[in-house]
Amino acid sequence: MSEAADERSLASRLRLAVVRLNRRLRAQRADNEVSLTQISALSSLYKCGPMTPGQLAAREGVQPPSMTRVIAALEGLEYVERSPHPTDGRQAIVTLTKEGQDYVRTTISRREMWLDQRLAELTDEERRVLSKAAEIIERMARHN
């Protein structure tokens, strides 16, 4: 098999593996009321703290109008709230509510528990390989 064919095969195998893993992780959601995009935005707020809609859009890699819709939906669920920016009257700060924090903790806990169980079934060497692969995939995901 040529090197180019090997690379296509790797790309295909990696894409399918990520899609399948993502599907399994989605099945661990606390409910189906919140979309994956919304969960991702909630997770970013949980990890990084309050931020402007523009900062959140940039972090999530979406256009600001799309993030505005995500934030509005999350406000409707009472998972986030907007407050005035302390120094820029044109901006708002988006913050997780207690309900939003609880939702993220529950969702993360379910997913991580499922992943922890799968990882426990692997050898030490397989876990080391996955640790390195996670670093590489994260780096790939940051590129446009």
Rank of each mutant, 00 (worst) to 15 (best):
R111D: 00
T68G: 08
S83Y: 02
E121A: 05
A57D: 11
V104I: 12
D116R: 10
G100L: 12
L42A: 13
R59D: 04
T68Y: 09
K132M: 03
M1S: 12
E135H: 01
L115Y: 05
A133P: 00
M113C: 11
E126C: 01
S83V: 07
Q101F: 02
N144T: 15
Q101I: 09
R111E: 07
V19G: 00
E138R: 04
L42G: 08
S43G: 14
P64F: 08
E126W: 01
E138D: 03
R90C: 04
P65H: 13
V34R: 00
R142W: 13
A4I: 14
L45Q: 05
N22V: 06
A58K: 11
S109L: 12
S35W: 03
E7G: 06
M140L: 15
I136Q: 08
T37N: 11
A92T: 11
T123I: 04
Y79N: 03
T123Q: 02
K47F: 13
Q55D: 12
T97S: 14
R23G: 08
T97L: 13
V129G: 00
A134V: 04
T107D: 15
L25K: 07
L10K: 12
M140D: 03
I93N: 08
R26G: 06
P65V: 13
L77Q: 07
Q28I: 09
I93M: 15
G54R: 05
L122K: 02
Q101R: 08
M113G: 10
A11C: 10
H143V: 14
A141F: 15
L16W: 05
Q55Y: 02
S43A: 12
T68S: 14
I137M: 10
K132L: 07
A11G: 13
P53N: 11
R118N: 06
P84A: 14
E125F: 04
R20N: 05
A30I: 07
R111W: 04
K132P: 01
V19T: 05
R23Y: 00
A27R: 13
P64E: 12
R142A: 15
V62L: 11
R15K: 11
R59G: 01
R139N: 06
E125G: 03
P53K: 08
D116H: 13
Y46M: 01
L130Y: 02
M140A: 14
E33L: 07
S2L: 11
E121C: 00
L130K: 01
T106L: 12
A141V: 14
V62I: 14
